[in-house]
Amino acid sequence: MGVPLNERKSEFFRTMGHPVRIRVLELLGDGPKPVRDLLADVGIEASSLSQQLAVLRRAGIVVSYREGSSVMYALSGPDVAEVMDAARRFLTAMMADQAELLKELRDSEPATVPR
């Protein structure tokens, strides 16, 4: 018997659960990019970026290939971009709800409490 699906999903989200990896995936959502562009956009040491890209590549979330003298990275498929888009929509809605709740709380404060 293989690894249960819930364990594979957990590993998938653990792999994605790093700020640099998330940023790389967001950037690659716009299409393939050479490492030099990712390095400029992410703003970390080349060795650190290389480590994070290797984690994503080993997990099958991104692929790499050569284009001339450049090493290019791309999402392994459109589903990765869809997961990232879904996360953005979820977080945007959650933050909007929190902002509305904060506004309601502030509006209901007694006048003597400084804002």
Rank of each mutant, 00 (worst) to 15 (best):
G77F: 01
S69Y: 08
D37P: 01
R88L: 12
E67R: 10
R66T: 08
V35T: 10
E82S: 12
Q52G: 06
P32V: 09
V35K: 10
V113G: 01
P114F: 13
G2K: 09
D97M: 09
H18W: 02
E82P: 01
T92K: 07
V24P: 10
K9M: 14
I61E: 04
D79F: 11
D85E: 12
L28Y: 07
R89G: 00
D107M: 07
R21P: 07
D97K: 09
I61C: 03
V71D: 06
E26A: 05
S108E: 01
V24L: 04
S47Y: 13
D107I: 04
S10M: 09
L56E: 13
F90P: 01
A81P: 08
R106I: 00
M95W: 05
A86Q: 10
L49T: 09
F13Y: 10
I22F: 06
Y73I: 00
R14G: 00
D79T: 10
E104Y: 02
L25K: 00
I22A: 02
G31P: 04
Q98D: 00
D30M: 05
L38P: 06
S50Q: 08
R23C: 04
Y65N: 09
L28R: 00
D37N: 06
G31I: 04
A99W: 00
L5M: 15
L27N: 01
R58V: 03
L27D: 02
L56C: 15
D107W: 04
V113S: 12
P19N: 09
M72D: 13
R66F: 07
V42H: 07
G2F: 12
S69W: 05
V24M: 02
L49C: 09
E82A: 14
L49K: 08
F12Y: 15
R14S: 04
M95D: 10
A40M: 11
K9D: 11
A96L: 00
L101G: 00
M95E: 03
G77P: 03
M94W: 05
L75I: 03
V71A: 07
S10G: 10
P110Q: 08
R8H: 14
V83H: 08
A46E: 15
A59P: 07
K103C: 04
K103R: 14
A81K: 03
S69P: 05
K9T: 09
Q51F: 12
Q98F: 00
L39R: 11
G31Q: 06
M94C: 08
V42I: 15
D41H: 11
T92W: 06
S108L: 11
S108C: 04
D30R: 05
G43E: 05
K103H: 11
K9V: 13
Y73A: 02
S48E: 11
N6L: 05
V63G: 06
E45D: 11
E7Y: 13
E26Y: 04
V35L: 10
S70D: 15
S70Y: 03
R89Q: 09
A87L: 15
S69L: 03
S70T: 01
N6S: 12
A74L: 04
R8C: 11
D30Q: 11
E7P: 01
D85Q: 04
R8W: 10
L38F: 02
F12P: 07
R36N: 08
Y65A: 13
T92S: 11
V42L: 10
I22R: 05
S76A: 15
A81C: 02
V63A: 12
R23D: 08
E82I: 05
L49S: 10
L5H: 14
A74C: 03
D97Y: 02
I44W: 12
M95N: 04
D79E: 11
I22V: 15
A86S: 11
M94A: 14
